[in-house]
Amino acid sequence: MKTKFRHVALIGKYQASGSGLSSDSGRQAIADIAAVIAKQGCRVSVEAGTASSMGLGQYPSLAVEEIGSQCDLGLVVGGDGTMLGIGRQLAKFGTPLIGINQGRLGFITDIPLETYETTLPPMLHGEYEEDLRPLMQARVVRDERIVFEALAMNDVVVNRGATAGMVELRVEVGGELVANQRADGLIIASPTGSTAYALSAGGPMLHPSIPGWVLVPIAPHTLSNRPIVLSDANEVAVEVVSGRDVSANFDMQSLASLLRGDRIVVKRSEHCVRFLHPHGWNYFATLRKKLRWNEGGS
């Protein structure tokens, strides 16, 4: 049977810190995965940073932009953080992504490393479930000028400084005032991000099919200030009324320092990230495994 994908790019986690793929075992894992892909009749390229870090000179190396324009599939080896970073960059190209998790089960890098040899070949031949995740487009507005812009797949978080007191934030949805909130911060999370920081702050989990966001206060001064689920058709604006050392971060991977009067404006991006999962995948099975639901049950 002919493969559905002709040109596959491999992207690995190769940062020096943490449990990246710079080890010999990680390098071997990437090489072995490349061999499995090539055996299925696919052309293999390696993301430039991954190739340089791991010495994988036997395969052509491509910058991320070149992957988007030349490859019809990206295969990410690492964790959810690695997938978040590459997903934001490749979303505008519509490049589908498969995630192989080297470590704990991830929510979006959901293929365990030890099973890829049997899981990947059917997917390369078209047996998969497609899962679209919308991105959030965020910008920081200061004196009516945009001073920072970023995409986020998980969340946009406004936080107080580590040694500062509470911040006061004016929150608007669709141009309408929601409240002035005093808290340690505020999370605006997508369904994908509802199982990340927002969940630990007491927010609900949103099914990926829901076109919505969740607004979650972090340690609010008023206990009746609770998480709320919103339609993602509405723009959310958060203005810094008071507070010191306030910052905004986007998927915890990019950060902007904020001043009093700054507005963080979040809207749904026109781009989605395309995830491919093994045939038979479903969201609730991932939750059962990741959150250890029904442990001890039949």
Results as ranks from 00 to 15, higher is better:
285 A>Q: 09
169 L>C: 08
155 D>T: 11
197 Y>T: 00
118 T>H: 14
79 G>N: 04
85 G>H: 13
204 P>I: 14
263 R>E: 05
131 D>M: 09
127 E>R: 15
256 A>F: 03
182 R>L: 07
183 A>C: 15
116 Y>C: 02
264 I>T: 00
161 G>S: 09
2 K>A: 12
107 F>C: 01
148 F>H: 07
209 S>N: 08
259 L>M: 11
180 N>L: 06
23 S>C: 09
192 T>P: 06
226 R>A: 06
121 P>S: 08
271 H>E: 09
283 Y>L: 03
236 V>R: 02
276 L>A: 03
164 A>S: 15
95 T>N: 02
267 K>R: 11
59 Y>K: 07
220 P>K: 12
90 L>C: 02
93 F>Y: 13
202 G>E: 06
125 H>E: 09
171 V>Q: 02
24 D>R: 15
258 L>M: 08
157 V>G: 01
193 G>I: 05
30 I>N: 03
42 C>I: 09
105 L>V: 03
200 S>I: 05
278 P>S: 11
123 M>K: 10
214 V>C: 02
79 G>C: 04
271 H>T: 04
46 V>E: 04
296 G>Y: 07
283 Y>F: 15
43 R>H: 15
168 E>G: 13
72 D>Y: 09
54 M>R: 08
291 L>T: 08
152 A>Q: 02
1 M>N: 11
